[in-house]
Amino acid sequence: MLRSRTPVLLATAVAVALTSQACSTDTSPAPTAPGSAPVTTTTGAAETTATAETTATAGTTVDATEPASPGDDDAEQAPPATRTPTAGATSRPAAASAGAILDGRRQVVIKPVESSESIVVIDDAGRLTLTDGPTDSGLFVLTPSGNRHLIKTARAGAGGEPSCLGLKTNGSSSLTVEAAPCDAGRAGQLFSIQRQNGQEAGGRPVYSLSSGGAYLRVSGQGGLIAEELGDSAATGFTFVDNGAATLPQLGD
């Protein structure tokens, strides 16, 4: 009886094993969720190929580039360039013509050619001298009077009027120049301004200044005197433009 059942049990076991093997090699594709990427599996191959959809939903394109967060933009964005002023913002305006200076329309610094660091100023005593330091009394206006000029201070004094340069006698000593109330009828205040043979210094014309035959020149002591020409040559001066004159013009 036992011998007759043994073949039957063996056949049953073999059938169960074959059924299990068939289930494990099922190649039917697994169901996919709606909207997911379809997956194709090749039986017996070592690779599987996945194809991603380019649209997640109808009419909507998925951008493959992931946008950076606002914080990343702030960290990576280069700062705006600082506008550097051009050369035209710090350039100096063109110098006024000699005609505008000699017409009394500009205020000028009077600079002796032989003393490159000094300018003509009026000291506390009212005398004309030189300085190479800061000053508020070194601007003048050359006002025509006939064929000569009054040399006026560019700023009015305490009485509301400018002063004029004029010669002063000092006995046997050399003439000096001092500031005094303007008076075109006083010969010592009228100066001849003559260009010196086309000479230039720093691109500016060079002039001599004289009144009544006495020429203004730098003395050996570094001051300014006026004397007739002898063995000493007249000092040359240039006029450095410092903007429009603010003194009232005749007839204003």
Rank of each mutant, 00 (worst) to 15 (best):
A95F: 05
E228M: 11
N197G: 04
S211F: 01
A68C: 06
A17G: 12
G146A: 03
C182Y: 01
G133F: 02
E47Y: 04
E178I: 05
L102I: 00
N170I: 13
T57L: 05
T169D: 15
D73R: 13
P80D: 11
I110M: 07
S145T: 09
V108F: 03
R204Q: 13
L128A: 13
S172M: 10
I122L: 13
D73A: 12
A180G: 12
A13H: 05
I193T: 08
A95T: 15
T41N: 10
P162S: 03
P181T: 11
V141P: 00
T84V: 11
A37G: 10
R204E: 03
S219Y: 02
V177T: 14
P70T: 04
G171C: 02
A226Y: 00
E178R: 10
A45D: 13
Q199W: 06
T54F: 12
G166N: 09
Q196F: 04
S174Q: 14
L2G: 14
I110E: 02
G222V: 06
K152G: 01
T246K: 09
V109I: 10
S36Q: 10
E76R: 10
T27Y: 06
R217Q: 12
F191P: 15
V218R: 04
A33Y: 11
T153D: 05
H149D: 02
V206M: 04
K168Q: 13
A22V: 10
Q194S: 05
S69C: 03
L175P: 02
D231A: 14
